[in-house]
Design a protein around this nucleic acid. Structure first.
Length: 630
DNA sequence: CCCCCCCC
């Protein structure tokens, strides 16, 4: 009696592609599958079921992950009776034509049950050898809509050996799935039999089809140029071999923008390819794609794109951002340590208002400011300190290094594709949340790191400091001269004045700026020093904190020695600061002296060579320096 | 064929 409750023969019919039937089956085995990816988050956990239709069993049945909870809550267990509401056949072994049933929707009809009947395993090899090949795509388009029925009829008696002629083709299966798109070559140009890998695409190929997932899609943007107005969108395509950026303009923008959905898989044939522009495109491919009027895009059937990966990241560490050039694009992952409120700014260029939000993103070595704009800023919630991956984010150089999202930046919270998500989570929760790391977005904290190291002659050759805005540059050099007698001056005691006062030699000090006479003054540093490297020498000016760092005594102390005419003490202090190999961050700015334009170099920071963190990079840079002949 | 992504 119970036996009749199961849909006898349904498993074989499913395997042959007639997946439209909603069969009642018994779950006779459940097996968790260890994740093939090394994703430790557990999100990739899958269950493999052995199903019975009363006569036969089939063990290659994958339960959609959204139904994992049915097993984990003990609703679905051994001998449960289910109705299969949506199932797909997936090829798992192209050579041998082995298939797997993907269960996308099931309903539990009865949770607890006894084993029904005495089913035996479908001898799959027999089916295969008799000619079933789910990959085989017949190009004939005969009306064989009855084929699944005949297959069902023959398998109803559980006959395993089948005449291959009686087997339905994939086209038939598509019909039986209610899918009337005939994805064969000659009908619409999509040749699903000859799918090539994205990493083999090049501009010299004309006929190709790829099967790719949309990992990212931009908004539509309009533009105007000499040829008039236009619009475009771009998207990133991934398959198991790699990724590529694709762009659709105007007609193709209209045609494909709404059709392509992030996360979905498509067959794409015929598009233009050209060299990727690295300035705007960080996808890991030498080429980028432009959709044209010959381009054909067709959605992949549900379940058939499961083997296509989700998204590909090429992360660099936050520290490494310091070594990338401003305005370049990269992929970064980190933990959101803090989030600013939303702010509104007015663009200088367009006078338009924009919403923005800043995040402090941290990894194990460093932190950096990340700016989100518009909708991404409005929607972002960092209160739970999520791990966030940014793909295609732009590096800026305000106050060191910053990151700023652009139109094509993909933001993913807690991405399961990468082990970094879990690594960073564990690190942050255990220690990261309570430690302060160097911030690449704060010039002072990072010392020289955010500025390029140049030789003194490079500074001259490149004309640094000649522009209207100051240039910032780092120099590795030694102190070759330090003017002792003018190292400190008497400064106006008025807060924020800073002007030099004139000693009236009667216990009062006159400040011309304040136009006042004071009873006291403050000592202040303004050191003139010559620094040298192998390419030349340069006079620079060193104030306050940097001077104190260099000389190791406060301006007050040094001034008192000067007041006491303790020449030997001052000389000693200077001597200790001489011939030291240091990294100077300099501000170069042209100033007008009468008719002469002179570049003034002000020391912004002075640091000892920190070989532990900068040594390797510095050595590399120094080794790459060409000796400059005069 | 775009390539602007805004502010300090």
């Amino acid at each position: 009696m119970a036996n009749q409750r199961l849909t006898t023969g349904a498993l074989l019919r499913y395997i042959r592609g007639n997946t439209s039937e909603k069969a009642t089956l018994q779950v006779v085995g459940i097996k968790p599958i260890e994740s093939k990816t090394d994703d430790p988050s557990g999100s990739a956990k899958r269950y493999r079921l052995m199903l019975s239709d009363g006569k036969s069993t089939f063990s290659s049945c994958m339960l959609g992950t959204q139904m994992n909870k049915l097993i984990e809550t003990d609703s679905l267990k051994e001998n449960s009776i289910i109705r299969v509401d949506r199932v797909m056949v997936n090829s798992i072994d192209k050579q041998n034509g082995r298939v797997m049933l993907m269960l996308y929707e099931i309903e539990i009809l009865q949770s607890d049950c006894e084993r029904i009947g005495d089913p035996v395993a479908l001898p799959l090899t027999d089916i295969i050898n008799s000619g079933t090949n789910t990959n085989r795509l017949e190009t004939t388009n005969n009306n064989q809509a009855q084929a699944p029925i005949s297959a069902a009829a023959s398998s109803a008696t559980n006959v395993i050996r089948q005449d291959s002629k009686a087997l339905p083709t994939l086209d038939d299966r598509k019909k039986s799935n209610g899918d009337n798109r005939l994805g064969s070559k000659g009908t619409n140009g999509i040749d699903k039999e000859r799918i090539i890998n994205i990493d083999t695409l090049n501009p010299y190929m004309t006929k190709w089809t790829i099967k790719a997932r949309i990992s990212n899609k931009s908004q539509i943007r309009t533009y105007e140029n000499a040829r008039g107005p236009g619009k475009l969108f771009s998207c990133d395509l991934v398959d198991q071999s790699g990724e590529i950026r694709a762009t659709g303009f105007n007609a193709e923008c209209d045609k494909f923008y709404s059709m392509l959905e992030i996360g979905e898989v498509y067959y794409i044939a015929k598009a233009s390819l050209k060299a990727a522009n690295r300035q705007f495109n960080n996808t890991n491919n030498d080429y980028e794609m432009t959709f044209n009027h010959d381009t054909i895009i067709e959605a992949c059937d549900a379940g058939e794109g499961e083997n296509i990966p989700q998204v590909q990241f090429n992360f660099i560490s936050i520290n490494d951002i310091a070594n990338r050039s401003a305005n370049s694009i990269c992929d970064v992952i980190g933990v959101v340590k803090s989030t600013s409120d939303m702010q509104t700014i007015v663009s200088k260029a367009s006078q338009k208002e924009f919403n923005k939000r800043d995040l402090l993103l941290v990894d194990e070595k460093a932190s950096i400011s990340v700016t989100l704009w518009g909708q991404q800023a409005e929607e972002f919630d960092g209160s739970s300190h999520p791990v966030v991956a940014f793909k295609g984010i732009k590096i800026g150089d305000f106050n060191g290094r910053t990151l700023s999202c652009i139109n094509s930046t993909l933001i993913r919270q807690d991405p399961p594709e990468t082990q970094r998500t879990v690594e960073l989570r564990v690190w942050f929760d255990n220690e990261g949340k309570s430690i302060d790391l160097p911030d690449l977005s704060k010039g002072a904290d990072t010392g020289n790191r955010q500025t390029v190291i140049k030789t003194l002659s490079q500074i001259v050759v490149e004309g640094l400091g000649l522009g209207d805005k100051p240039d910032y540059v780092c120099v590795k050099g030694i102190t070759t001269l330090i003017k002792k007698d003018t190292a400190v001056y008497m400064m106006c005691p008025e807060e924020k004045c800073g002007k030099k006062v004139v000693d009236e030699n009667n216990g009062t000090y006159r400040c011309e700026k304040c136009n006042k006479t004071y009873n006291n003054f403050k000592w202040a540093y303004m050191i003139s020093a010559e620094i040298s490297d192998v390419t030349g020498a340069q006079w620079i000016t060193i104030f306050r904190n940097e001077a104190e760092t260099l000389l190791g005594v406060t301006a007050d102390e040094f001034g008192n020695h000067k007041l006491n005419q303790s020449e030997s003490i001052m000389e000693d202090i200077i001597r200790k600061a001489m011939n030291r190999e240091l990294i100077f961050k300099l501000r170069a700015k042209a100033e007008q002296y009468n008719d002469e334009r002179k570049i003034r170099f002000t020391c912004m920071s002075v640091n000892d060579m920190d070989w532990s963190s900068h040594g390797r990079r510095l050595i590399n840079e120094i080794n790459q320096m060409e000796p400059i002949q005069n």
